[in-house]
Amino acid sequence: MPSGDYKVVINHEEQYSIWALDRPTPAGWRDEGFSGDRNSCLAHIDTVWTDMRPRSLREAMQESERA
């Protein structure tokens, strides 16, 4: 993996990942706001991504519990 800076990105399922800072963010992803070197991006994700269930599952589970 080349060095260089990354940004934290997030998709519609509220799943997190990282992407090269100088490249356009792929469709369906938005910048979360954090950027830095690779390790600090991953460390940041470790602290903010607390519920790893995809959003659709979270909603389905809430639905199912209500039922």
């Binding site: 998709n11 799943q15 369906g28 991953l42 994700i45």
Partner: peptide, 17 residues
């Protein structure tokens, strides 16, 4: 989460997200 974000990355060639 960190490890997941590292190995499961945005797919620039797939559908949105």
């Amino acid at each position: 989460p960190g490890l997941t974000a590292e190995r499961f990355v945005p797919d620039p060639y797939g559908g949105p997200g």
